[in-house]
Design a protein around this nucleic acid. Structure first.
Lengths: 208, 208
DNA sequence: ACGTCGTTGCACAGCGGTGTGCAATGATGG
DNA sequence: CCATCATTGCACACCGCTGTGCAACGACGT
């Protein structure tokens, strides 16, 4: 009993357990990313543990997905709040957002598939705040006449958001698109003129 | 025995059978559109028929999906070949395509969800020709400097295609976007300047 | 009137995934 | 050295869906 602070005792046992838990989560992103219908057994096998162990950390499949989603929401909001706080123009802010979210979007692309079907409601609720932040950013751009108004901010932000994930996904299969292409494409559909879109996009962009 | 021509005898029995078959197909589009994981039982119930009857028309679930896909491919190619044949500019052709495909896309939006997961390969093969036609149209536009080149034609066409479906889907839930909005949005992301995109889009567009 | 045939309602077996229970194992901490 | 505990490797029941078999029923065609 030597735990004075709030640190919950990092013994070697606790650490090993946390590592297993994290490995399960990491590997679950990959496995479910390739096949959203993969079962707990597939995740366990990919993580090098037995199915029973996974249930030891996550009582139900929904718990696993929820934890994954919470992780994603945390990373997304971290990126978004940092950018929304800046007083840059909306198009520049969007470009920065896509660039910084590109690697993250690739990892969490599964959430877009998981959003429909079986866990839709649970995930949708957790992803709500992120959606709102995006809609606000786009709405700001529309009000300052930087973005076009051919669609309401909510629909436009969701569509552009979806395109980023779709491109990240196709990058995994065919390897062509990179962060720069995703930035240009989404800026274009937001109504930014091509010249400025190209100027705002990151120079070369590592494709993963 | 009074069947002289190639018409396969349209007795009242044959017609009734064809009607149930068509009703199953129609209703399957709706049911699977709302939940791609719906089972044969759900489809049967929605069609006012017993599960066993569905298996009478479609020996397996895959047969149902395949028939649905073949239907979709037929309608899509009908629209596409008619447009690709015209000598209009690529952006005008794309605008015409989106306008005419908009109602169809709404009905067959499920195919985009079904494409990943479980039946992906089977559907992907059938949808291949449509993909090629779209890629050709976009490539033509890129060569004539009507569309931007921020993405290869294959990726760009697929993304724009996906956006049409995504907008048709969100139209079902929120009711806001219409064919005009979809046309403008996709033209923008193809690199068409906003002014021309708006000019090419259909005037008012029925939102369903 | 009688046979055909689509439909029905039930039965069944099979499969795969979920979630749980429990004894055994082995490493860690006291 | 001993107790704890995460992990393991089975076991099991439960569920839902698929696909099939078969005996009715009933409408339609001849």
């Amino acid at each position: 009993m030597c735990n004075d602070g709030a640190v919950p005792t990092e013994t070697s046992r606790t650490r090993a357990m946390r590592e297993t838990r994290d490995r399960i989560l990491d590997v679950a992103l990959d496995v479910l990313g390739e096949n959203p219908d993969a079962g707990m057994g597939d995740v366990a096998a990919a993580a090098g543990v037995v199915r029973r162990t996974v249930y030891g950390h996550f009582p139900s499949r929904l718990d696993l997905i929820r934890t994954l989603t919470e992780r994603a929401v945390a990373e997304m909001t971290a990126v978004l709040t940092g950018i929304a706080a800046s007083d840059a123009a909306a198009d520049a802010a969007w470009a920065a957002f896509v660039t910084r979210v590109w690697p993250v979007a690739h990892r969490y692309r599964v959430l877009l598939a998981l959003r429909r079907g079986e866990y839709g409601d649970a995930i949708h609720g957790l992803l709500g705040p992120v959606d709102d932040l995006l809609a606000d950013l786009v709405a700001r751009g529309q009000e300052s006449h930087v973005f076009a108004r051919h669609l309401p901010a909510a629909a436009l932000s969701q569509t552009a958001y979806g395109v980023v994930f779709a491109l990240a996904d196709s990058a995994r299969s065919h390897g062509t698109p990179d962060a720069r292409a995703a930035t240009v494409t989404t800026l274009l559909m937001l109504g930014v003129p091509e010249e400025r879109a190209v100027a705002l996009a990151p120079p070369a962009g590592p494709d993963l």
